[in-house]
């Protein structure tokens, strides 16, 4: 029996080392892939630890396709990075925030692109494969993703285990990572303007349902308040920005005002600024959108300038009130 266990050990030990090596190989190559709407690029920038942004933009796709760090940088004279995470609501935005400040210098100012879905909690972890290369033995990722459908508990602790059964995904993405010659960045400083014209997404949604009812998850709301408290303690300025929505889409959302009221009351409670762009004239121009909730490149550049303008106005007003 001793001999049997000895042999198992001799056979298994190199295999174990091989799993570590393979894990490292797969993870490093996945990181090179510019798939998943550039999410890997943002995570890579975060884990490199050399983001020195004074202004950080948080949010979902409504952040990363709509707010241009370049435009903000030019006008504010500050380094800006857009941390918008595609298709995810605040819990994942918070995870990204935690990972960002864990290895980077914290920002002085956080602009959060909020919307009617900010406090929604989904059952499935959207684009959960973006976490694969970074999640092994990562406590924050485990804490914030384990309540979703997507990962098994051993995925966080056993090397290679999380890649089981993902051969099609790996084949596709490792190909990109290993063999693609031009590894152009998908996003720049986390942002990408979308050269798109109006799609029929909205018509499809209308066909599916007559209206969209907002679901607010109390736990997510609590987490948002925790985040605001933490920022206040660390003296990080926070600005809530309700990004533009095409006017027709606004009528489609039930209880929209209820969510806006929540943002207003949070702004009052934590003495932070809330800028609501959903009433801005930009929302009347269909040509600036590619669907009801996302501006195209032209729209996003215009919106970024409007945002800069408002931020500077707020700054002026604050300075005046201090004086």
């Amino acid at each position: 029996m001793k001999h049997f266990f000895y042999k198992i050990l001799v056979f298994g030990l190199p295999l174990l080392l091989l799993t570590f090596a393979l894990d490292l190989f797969i993870s490093n190559n996945l990181k090179l892939s510019n798939n998943y709407h550039g999410e890997y690029e943002v995570w890579n920038d975060i884990y490199k630890g050399d983001i020195k942004a004074e202004v950080a933009i948080y949010g979902s796709s409504r952040a990363w396709v709509q707010i241009s760090p370049e435009i903000l940088k030019d006008s504010l004279n500050k380094d800006v990075y857009n941390f918008g995470i595609d298709g995810n609501t605040f819990p994942m935005q918070y995870l990204r925030h935690l990972e960002y400040i864990k290895v980077n210098q914290p920002p002085k100012h956080i602009i959060i692109a909020v919307d009617f879905n900010s406090f929604k909690k989904k059952k499935d972890l959207y684009m959960y494969k973006q976490f694969l290369p970074y999640m092994l033995w990562n406590k924050n990722i485990k804490t914030h993703t384990q309540s979703y459908n997507g990962f098994r508990s051993l995925d966080y602790s056993l090397p290679l285990f999380r890649y089981l059964g993902k051969n099609a995904f790996l084949k596709k993405n490792l190909n990109i990572g290993l063999f693609s010659k031009t590894k152009e960045n998908y996003r720049i400083n986390g942002y990408r303007g979308m050269d798109k014209t109006w799609t029929n997404d909205f018509d499809k949604a209308k066909k599916k349902m007559s209206s969209y009812k907002i679901k607010i998850d109390p736990e997510t709301l609590k987490l948002f308040e925790l985040f605001l408290t933490e920022c206040s303690k660390k003296e990080i300025k926070v600005t809530l920005v309700y990004t533009p929505e095409y006017i027709e889409g606004q009528h489609f959302i039930e209880d929209r005002n209820q969510v806006i009221d929540i943002f207003k009351s949070l702004a009052n409670k934590y003495k932070i600024n809330f800028i609501d762009f959903s009433q801005n004239a930009i929302c009347l121009n269909k040509d600036l959108f590619y669907n009801t909730t996302h501006l195209n490149k032209t729209g996003s550049e215009l919106f970024s300038r409007l945002l800069v303008h408002d931020l500077l106005e707020l700054k002026k007003n604050t300075s005046k009130s201090i004086e």
């Binding site: 190199p14 295999l15 051969n167």
Partner: peptide
């Protein structure tokens, strides 16, 4: 042993 490792790798690759 390498042959067995290849089999294990293939099982890993296609499993799940």
């Amino acid at each position: 042993i390498c042959f067995y490792y290849v089999l294990i790798f293939l099982i890993f690759w296609f499993s799940g």
